[in-house]
Design a protein around this nucleic acid. Structure first.
Lengths: 308, 308
DNA sequence: CACCCGGCCGAAAGTATCTTTCAGATGTGA
DNA sequence: TCACATCTGAAAGATACTTTCGGCCGGGTG
């Protein structure tokens, strides 16, 4: 190899590893040593990383009124092997900047929020609700409820309105692992069924307000008949807890007109229900696992064969 | 439509903007509809974004033991115009992960996990599901669905099993803001009701698998009768989308024996439902607000006087 | 003032990378 | 088992990136 040093020889560029983020700074540092055209390129790159990342060499050359060669030279000077790598770095930088700003999420949902904001805020709020619920859940109470469920002869679950759906969800799940569970949303039927419960059975009342008469009444009956009673409520001081052996507290997020309490209470209740279900499945794994498998099996043919 | 539709025709890919961050979720959502080779590529991409971003098409093809063509096909399926753009997105993702918080190691739930761990893991997984769903939700489709709902004469919602509860939740909510909505879980009744729908009405099908016949059939009938149809599904390529004017995709978390798919799909579906509800409430605020207030009022007396 | 010299610059050739095509391979249902 | 549809990769084709090379412009110098 002889020594005709061409410009393709990169060893004269600052021997730094491809810069990850501190690109703007690098541009500023190296700007003085750049030629006019290269400065234009560097400026464009530092000014709008995201935009430049979307451009090809030719595109960026045109944008800056220079040539492809100059763009490549600039990329080299900035420490990258070529434009391709500079472009990747720009994409990374853009993504970082993007994720950096996510401010407005904490605000309340307003009537004129764009759709994307609504989605972000709702998701954020529900995440917050989950975190709060998990943090506030009493594992001792949960463990006691799980123990009772694991050996229950029969499980009755009471809930009306939005909580009724949660009750049904729990019932569906428990049925799948072989428990005899039933969700009642009809208060009369709930009470007449509660009479049948006795020691060893479990009754669960789900009410966010903690004071829904239609749910408290059957729980009281179950309690009086000796069943183990559980309350899932957002008001651990509410009337429902009078008749509850174990109380599982759901968290309450701040609500607003566009975000009724039912929304976060449901999220919270469902997490509690999932915890109950999962823990019961753990404790009764020997019987639960085959029961679960069987229920999957039974459902398989309900789907058209499109699955790959 | 005529003859030779080649694979270069990309319009069958989910018409979503190139995902910036929610790529892992997207891979999970789309993985079932991928062929074996493409799954290998997707897996590599989701597993090591940074590493893959450094590879050329050929490199990634070799790494995964496939061909360049397959890599490009995978990129297309994930919603990018080609591999080049996927690569840019990967670089962005890598940068985000790099700068962002730790990957939050989420072990699977084990049979011998203590209760506190189960609670923490469940909460974390559901939070993740929410984030993924929010990131992957197509706001254009959502907006279209909201617009249709806002002016609907009547809304029918189909869902069976766990999705049936979500359907009921949505119906309850819409009823509260004065819409005429009904959730059907009986497939026969659903179809006979669907016949009544016509242009201006809205039919919504909720199915995680995207191939639940009992839900697809009524949606098809509604579609044929000119109603605006919406599908909320985890399989944007499933049969149900054939008859859906608008598709809202729910995210799919990895599942395990102790964490059945029904759990995360429900969380995801509920977020979508909440978004629908909240946005419709925004758009119809004039009539929705008083209706909401009235429903609160009506429920007030169902609660016994607060203790304390 | 004309000339020369050295570095800057871009057009175009050259090369790597990405995309598309097409035919063989593979699996699937009748 | 065969026919059919789908998947797959090799190779051709297109695009984007890199290098070469000669022109241009400025500043010094005889």
């Amino acid at each position: 190899m002889t020594n005709d040093v061409k410009e393709s020889f990169t060893s004269d560029a600052p021997a730094s590893p491809p810069a990850p983020a501190a690109l703007a700074a690098k541009v500023r540092t190296l700007a003085p040593s750049m030629t006019r055209s290269m400065q234009r390129v560097a400026e464009a790159v530092a000014g709008d990383p995201a935009g430049c990342a979307a451009l090809t060499v030719t595109g960026l050359a045109e944008l800056t009124g220079t040539s492809e060669a100059t763009v490549v030279r600039t990329a080299r000077l900035l420490g990258y092997p070529g434009y391709r790598d500079l472009r990747l770095a720009l994409a990374g930088l853009a993504a970082q900047q993007q994720s950096g700003r996510a401010p407005a999420v904490t605000a309340d949902i307003a009537v004129d929020d764009p759709i994307a904001d609504v989605v972000a805020k709702l998701a954020h709020d529900e995440q917050q609700t989950l975190a709060d619920t998990a943090a506030g859940l009493d594992t001792v109470q949960l463990g006691a409820a799980v123990a009772a469920l694991s050996t229950a002869r029969r499980v009755d679950i009471y809930g009306v309105g939005a909580s009724g759906l949660v009750a049904q969800d729990l019932a569906q799940k428990l049925l799948r692992i072989g428990l005899i569970a039933h969700a009642h949303s009809d208060p009369h039927l709930a009470v007449t069924n509660a009479v049948q419960l006795r020691s060893g059975d479990v009754a669960i009342a789900i009410t966010h307000s903690g004071s829904t008469g239609d749910v408290i009444e059957p729980l009281r009956v179950a309690f009086d008949h000796g069943a183990t009673t559980v309350a899932i409520t957002g008001r651990p001081d509410g009337p429902v807890t009078q008749y509850a052996d174990h109380v599982l507290t759901t968290s309450t997020a701040r609500e607003s007109e566009l975000r009724p309490a039912a929304m976060s209470s449901r999220t919270s209740q469902l997490l509690v229900v999932d915890c109950l279900f999962t823990c019961v499945t753990q404790r009764t794994y020997e019987t639960a696992a085959p029961a679960l498998a069987a229920s999957y099996e039974a459902l398989a043919h309900r789907h058209s064969p499109r699955t790959r």
